[in-house]
Nucleic acid binder design. Structure first.
Lengths: 200, 200
DNA sequence: CCACATCTGTAGCGAACACTACAAATCTGG
DNA sequence: CCAGATTTGTAGTGTTCGCTACAGATGTGG
């Protein structure tokens, strides 16, 4: 039944380049011309492989969260809630100022507000951020069960808090904050988690 | 010397409408057609009055920060660093879920990442956010001098922290978080400031 | 070697974008 | 009432956007 001409580029490598363009310019700010040039392909190849611009974004987000998934597992593997928060936020301070990537976080830079016709892009990003928050929440629920968090503390609220700080750090990073500034933010932020720690 | 035909609309009222459009769709997502319709004017009036799209954004940002300036002064008028943080973050939880406005904060929704040709829009927003941070920092410096913050605490880091949480809350609000969820984040966040409070 | 299926590059599609030329309309100063 | 100045609405401008038609290229199955 004939298999046809094989694809002439590596989809994952191309996605890495697309990720970077979305990361730097946002969904609406990234043009197909910029994307195809970065990916080293022509528009028809892009559309044959990913459907349309939004499909390409989703594929890039999938790859992004997949790559970060391993790191998130290291984070929640920390022994205490406090250390989970510390690993998470200190790691973010590092990652979001890594010169190998655009500053900030793709899940924020990708597009917080979009124009008519792209309304679900912000939702798409929010859903991916919510995944991280859920992982944190589950970890904090365990921490509470283990007596690592106070009886009065709310794991879901704590997870939301850490997630909010992470997002805030991302925005700061994208607007020029350096690594040391982010570390200071993380350091202060962890103290709130510490205040929730303990047996009582 | 003849004064010419007077302007047929109120610039501030028009700016309020423009603010809302930028707030909801971001700088790049907002089209001139949407802006002029919301403002109740035609394109030539817009360009005669504000220069171009970016000029309109700056005017809208000026108005936004001016309107919030009064509130910020109430915030820093709180008696202690802890209460400053609490008023700020609890007030933000309220404001960012006020149905009278789009959710979130214009200084974030306006545009975190932009395409080629609008690179300075994110800088413009960051500069306005930095103003708030500076106000907080100055207030925390005073708090430290008054013995309201520990000798070991860093007022600038604390201001950056509160500012980061505020931004994070804004992003959460824009993606659907309700008032109670934001209040919980604020409540946890304040505990980090509390940990820095005291004489020692 | 041939029929078929899929990918690739060229070139360009209609639509939407930010922005403006122009003339009619509306004011002030004399 | 008139001359000069400014604004307003109509109706576009050229450019760029996301996306695609089409034909040639490159593979597999028989």
């Amino acid at each position: 039944m004939a298999m046809g001409r094989p694809r002439g580029f590596d989809a994952d490598a191309a996605l890495d380049q697309a990720m970077e363009v979305f990361w730097r310019h946002g969904y609406e700010g990234a043009t197909i011309a910029q994307l195809t040039e970065a990916m080293g392909i022509n528009p028809p190849s892009l559309y044959a492989c990913f459907g349309n611009k939004e499909g390409l974004l989703k594929a890039a987000l999938d790859r992004y969260t997949k790559l970060r998934g391993a790191w998130m597992e290291e984070v929640v593997a920390a022994p205490t809630a406090r250390e989970v928060a510390e690993r998470m936020l200190m790691g973010i301070a590092e990652k979001q100022t890594d010169p190998a990537n655009p500053p900030g976080c793709l899940l924020v830079q990708g597009g917080i507000a979009c124009g008519t016709g792209s309304e679900n892009v912000p939702f798409e990003l929010a859903a991916r951020r919510a995944q991280n928050e859920d992982q944190l929440r589950d970890r904090f629920i365990r921490a509470k069960a283990e007596g690592d968090l106070k009886e009065t503390s709310d794991p879901a609220a704590l997870a939301r808090y850490v997630s909010a700080v992470a997002v805030g750090m991302g925005v700061m990073a994208s607007s020029g904050a350096d690594r040391e500034a982010l570390r200071q933010v993380a350091s202060v932020a962890v103290q709130a988690v510490e205040a929730q720690s303990g047996r009582e």
